[in-house]
């Protein structure tokens, strides 16, 4: 294929920047999405996710920097490129008032004839009734139409903006299965979200954006390892909080009688060694939750607390 000759990077953004007048969309984004991986693109609303996606699709033109998608230039090669991209808009609006089937036929035709079986197969999996007019569908069903058109032509790259919005939990699982199958078939998936669970279950890596800047790119597992976890230790007698407060990585220490509560960032070792000086009755460590990890990026950076709280 054309793109595989260039390199194993499906999406490369270099200093990608977009200002709307003086308002910042995204600034100085350097990002690589590897061919065949699922990358989650996380951040609160207004962080610049949709702006970035629209830049990759050539709906917007960068103020500075540039993007390479499947080895091609989004503007110059738009026609070739879009045949290999499946895009799900974050704000779905459908042109026209026709039946879902007729709209999907248009997408199938415009992509050079997608087998109708593929379309009906996807619709069945998502339990979507194709005979109803688009404008009479519920939000969740509209989202399914959007997903069917994005996946129908087995594109090399799937760009999905908030893909599970409006889907019930069962359909979210079906969607995650679609993403896993896409990865198994060698397709690349770049999906934005402000819900961590869906990314946690499928993504290989996550890129986190905040206030128009890239905050971090991490493997999902390492994000879990460096997670802030809550630890609760029950001793057989009262303990002094001050004894634990100075330990590396330990914070928010409270002691009420024999129960010590704190949060630990990183390794548990220092806390365990300190606790071992007393008789430990019980120890509870909450499963590191990506949601908390995610939020820690906001709470632990200056001036970003409001953004996180508002998201």
């Amino acid at each position: 294929m054309l793109w595989s000759m260039t390199d194993d990077i499906a999406v490369r953004a270099e200093d990608l920047t977009k200002f709307y007048g003086t308002r910042r969309g995204i600034e100085g984004l350097d990002l690589e999405v590897r061919t065949g991986e699922v990358m989650g693109f996380l951040g609160p609303n207004g962080a610049g996710k949709t702006t970035t996606i629209r830049l990759l699709l050539d709906f917007l033109r960068p103020t500075r920097g540039h993007a390479t998608v499947l080895g091609m230039d989004p503007r110059r090669d738009k026609a070739t490129l879009h045949a290999q991209i499946g895009y799900l808009p974050g704000e779905l609006a459908f042109p026209g008032r026709e039946k879902a089937a007729d709209l999907l036929k248009f997408f199938a035709d415009s992509r050079g004839g997608v087998a109708w079986q593929t379309v009906t197969g996807l619709a069945e999996r998502l339990e979507l009734d194709l005979s109803r007019p688009i404008h009479t569908l519920s939000k969740g069903n509209k989202q399914k139409v959007g997903l069917v058109q994005a996946f129908m032509h087995s594109p090399a790259l799937l760009i999905l903006d908030e893909p599970t919005s409006g889907l019930d939990p069962l359909m979210q699982q079906e969607f995650l299965a679609l993403v896993r199958e896409a990865r198994a078939a060698g397709q690349t998936v770049f999906m934005s979200s402000h819900v961590l669970a869906e990314v946690q279950q499928t993504a290989d890596r996550v890129a986190i954006v905040r206030d128009g800047h890239l905050a971090a790119v991490e493997r999902v597992e390492s994000l879990g390892r460096r997670a802030v976890r809550t630890v609760e230790i029950h001793f057989d007698g009262p303990v002094d909080a001050a004894e634990f407060a100075a330990l590396p990585g330990v914070s928010d220490v409270t002691a009420s009688g024999p129960v010590l509560r704190c949060t630990v960032d990183g390794r548990l070792d220092p806390l365990i060694k300190a606790a071992a000086r007393h008789d430990v009755v019980d120890l509870l460590s909450a499963e590191p939750d990506l949601e908390e990890t995610f939020l820690s990026f906001y709470y632990h950076s200056e001036g970003a607390g409001d953004v996180a709280a508002g998201a």
Partner: peptide, 11 residues
Amino acid sequence: GGIELLMVNPL
């Protein structure tokens, strides 16, 4: 907003 899904046409 419907233009996004029109412009995904490979054109």
